[in-house]
């Protein structure tokens, strides 16, 4: 028995020496990506697809795990940020994580602590229950203006990107809806199908199958350009309501991030792999099938996009009264 212990001690010593020699070129070991949203969701699937391709580029396996909880993904984000800035831990994030600073007392960082790699996102679309008389976005706005608060609008909970889009849409169009919050996009779409709410705002990706099957009638996308899914063109709300251009678009941005203080050569390696992965057939096909607008931005470009989202989302959340930290105190400019 004592021999066993001696063996363990000896092995530990050998290990100590091995570590000294373990300085190798990145990546020498598996990479772990911590997705802060649940498995099966939009961020999770996109990150898993891009990681699958990047693993081929980098030549090491990339493990994707989900660490959810807290508000605005705070638990997973704090977990990913607490790991060494060596590039072996990445964080799978989305635009909602830009509000974490405002939502959570013990996370006082802004998007600047990360270097972002953006896969893309799907534009938001306003849809109604198909048996309602509203054929265009103007019909809907006119009806809402005629009887303010009579039309019930479903979307994810306060501060979610879809809720913020709904708010901006109300602001730009002058319509007033009765906002009914749901625990995510899928339940809100269900509610619109059952007629519990009349209108729903979620992303095209999330609604695509329901739109194609005629379960929801899309009225307009909340981005400047029209969007086509399987031959059906959804016009842009901007066409008839020009005032929207002042408050929108606020677009989904799904991707991953590495700690900004990671070594430059590591970031460069990941950037190369990311660029190659974005060009791969798998990712391109994924984007097409899932109705994403692929981005591929990283570096300064991505940081700028995220700062913009941070401004609009953080201030929206703060004005809803659900934040804890004033965005001004975090140095986040007003949109």
């Amino acid at each position: 028995m004592k021999r066993v212990f001696a063996l363990v001690v000896a092995l530990a010593l050998v290990a100590g020496f091995a570590f000294a020699a373990a300085e190798q070129e990145f990546p020498a070991r598996d990479i772990t990506t911590i997705v802060v949203w649940g498995a099966g969701g939009g961020t999770d699937t996109s990150v898993r697809v891009i990681m699958g391709e990047m693993a081929n580029e980098l030549g090491v396996p990339i493990n994707v795990i989900n660490v959810t909880g807290g508000s605005a993904g705070s638990v997973g984000m704090a977990e990913a940020y607490s790991r060494d800035a060596d590039g072996y831990t990445l964080a799978g994030l989305s635009e909602s994580n830009t509000t974490t600073g405002v939502m959570v007392a013990d996370w006082d960082n802004t998007v600047d602590v990360w270097d972002w790699f953006l896969v893309g996102g799907s534009p938001d679309v306003v849809s109604v229950t198909p048996d309602l008389p509203y054929e265009t976005i103007d019909d809907l706005v006119a009806a809402a203006q005629a009887a303010p608060g009579s039309i019930k609008a479903g979307a994810g909970g306060a501060g979610s990107i879809h809720h913020v889009n709904l708010l901006a849409f109300e602001q730009g169009s002058g319509a007033d809806f009765d906002f009914i919050p749901y625990d995510g996009s899928a339940p809100s779409q269900n509610a619109a199908m059952t007629g519990e709410v009349q209108l729903v705002v979620t992303s095209v990706a999330e609604q695509a199958e329901l739109i194609r099957a005629g379960r929801l009638r899309p009225l307009a996308v909340l981005v400047p350009d029209a969007f086509t899914i399987s031959g059906q063109t959804i016009p842009s709300a901007f066409d008839t309501i020009p005032a929207l251009a002042e408050v929108l678009p606020i677009q989904q941005a799904i991707g991953f991030a590495i700690r900004a203080d990671a070594p430059e050569e590591v970031k460069a390696k990941i950037g190369e792999a990311f660029e190659a992965a974005m060009q791969s057939d798998t990712v391109q096909q994924f984007g097409e099938e899932r109705f994403y607008v692929l981005s591929g931005a990283y570096g300064d470009e991505a940081k700028e996009i995220m700062q913009g989202l941070q401004s609009s989302l953080s201030w929206a959340v703060w004005e809803q009264g659900i934040g804890v930290d004033d965005p001004a105190s975090l140095g986040i400019p007003r949109p």
Partner: peptide, 28 residues
């Protein structure tokens, strides 16, 4: 048939299906 998971493990399955290029829903 709706693309809406009926249970927590089914929600994971939804993600897995999408990774394999199948989008469950009424058009499946």
């Amino acid at each position: 048939s709706l693309g809406v998971p009926g249970s927590p493990p089914a929600a994971m399955l939804l993600g897995a299906l999408m990774l394999h290029g199948v989008a469950p829903g009424p058009m499946l």
